[in-house]
Structures are given as structure tokens and as C-alpha cells.
Amino acid sequence: MIRFQHTEIGYHRPLLAIEDLHLQTGKVYALLGLNGSGKSTLLKTLAAQITVLSGNLLINDFKVEELAQNANLRAQQIAFVSSRFEGVEHLSVADYVGLGRIPYASIFGKLTADERQLVHDTLEKLGLSYLSEKRTLEISDGERQMVSLARAFVQDTPVLLLDEPASFLDFLNREQLLRTLIPWAMHTNRCVVLSSHDLDLCIEHDLPLLLLAQQKLNVVQGLSKRDVQQLLIEKA
């Protein structure tokens, strides 16, 4: 689903080189790395906010440059959840989730009956129906993050990126987030990448880890916490 081919990534100057890597559908990848290792640059590159310096990066067989240019195509391929959604005055949860349909909507952004049903169903599946008519400013941080996830689900893209989605959540909400994401990725064949600092959580759920250290990206799975820590530090 996401394929790196001799890819050099960076913001003006190279920060990271990836020879050959393929991220598959149906999985939730956890992107781990120390501060300054280039996690957010990598994530922004995957989101087509910045382009690669050299080599190729294919997302669902589209070159990232093409996605950077073609706004609608981009939004139909990649959904992005930021670390925190602070809420917007007067914006209701249902409307917020509905914004996920913008890439498909007609000129005035009106949702069709089917789309409204999709919003409703998605909220229900996530157990968030009770929030539907609430304003996004009135609900808790945890609820807002789940609602953001719902919006991304509604956007219905093969790739979903989450930028440290757990950093403002307590452990219960973190658990809930992953318990929602993992089966969703598996059953609907999505490729999910989330950046995180919570090593315990990632290991506990046995996520494939993308370790970012010393300008390299390695995929590991099934290692112990100590080994992963060792890998992150040693290479630094």
C-alpha cells in the first residue's frame, strides 16, 4: 500500500533514506523514534504535505508528488488525524464527522442522505452516537479524539495517518483508540500509520513497529521493550 523505493526524505535537506520498504494493508504500524529523529517529517511526507527529495514514494500506487498536486485525489487516498483536536465553537460532532466527506461532496458541501447515514452508522459503531448533537467544544479530549477518528473513517481512504493520537489521552482512552483501529484496519483492509511515544502500548498490542533511528527506518515486530529501546538508543 505504501512503498518506498530509494526514497530520501527531508525538509530541504535529507533527514532519512529508505532503500526499499513496503507497508501492507490491514495493519496498524506504530512509528517510533526519539525526539528530532524525523518522525513528523516522515509523517508529513506520507501525508503529501512535503514531497520526497529523491527516489519514489508510492501511496496506493500514486506517486506522492501527484498527490501533493491533486488535492481531491490526495484527500481520497489519505486521511490524517492530528494529535489534538481542540474543538470549534458552534460546530456539532455530526457536522464535524461529516466534514470527512468533503473530498466527495458537491460544490456546497451538502451531504447526501447516504452520507448522513454513513456518519450516523460510523458514530454508532464507535459507540459515539450520544455525542452526535453535542458541540465539539463541549466534549472531552478523549471523546474529541474518538470523534476525529470517526471523521477519518468517514473519509474512507486506503491510508490513515495519525500524528501522536494518544498524547493527550489517558490510558483508558489510549486502549480504546487502538482497540478500534486494529480491527478496522484488518477488516476493511486499510494501512494505518500512527506515530507514538508509548512503547508499552505498542508492544502490548503487538503492532509492527517502524523504528526511526540514525537516518534509517526499520520494521520490527515481536521484540521486547528492552530490545526496542536498545535499538532506538544504540543507533542514535
Binding site: 504535505q49 481531491n72 484527500a75 490524517f80 492530528s82 466534514l99 468533503i102 473530498p103
Partner: peptide
């Protein structure tokens, strides 16, 4: 009026609007 969709997305900030295809 042609911008309605974009304006709705801008409510979430420009980064999110970008990811929503604006």
C-alpha cells in the same frame, strides 16, 4: 459561494483543510 466547501474545511485549520483536499 464557490468556496463553501473550502471554508467549511478551513474551520479545522489549514493543515486539516489540506488533508481534506482543499
Amino acid at each position: 459561494l464557490l468556496l463553501v466547501k473550502a471554508l467549511n474545511a478551513f474551520v479545522l485549520g489549514q493543515e486539516q483543510a489540506f488533508q481534506l483536499g482543499v
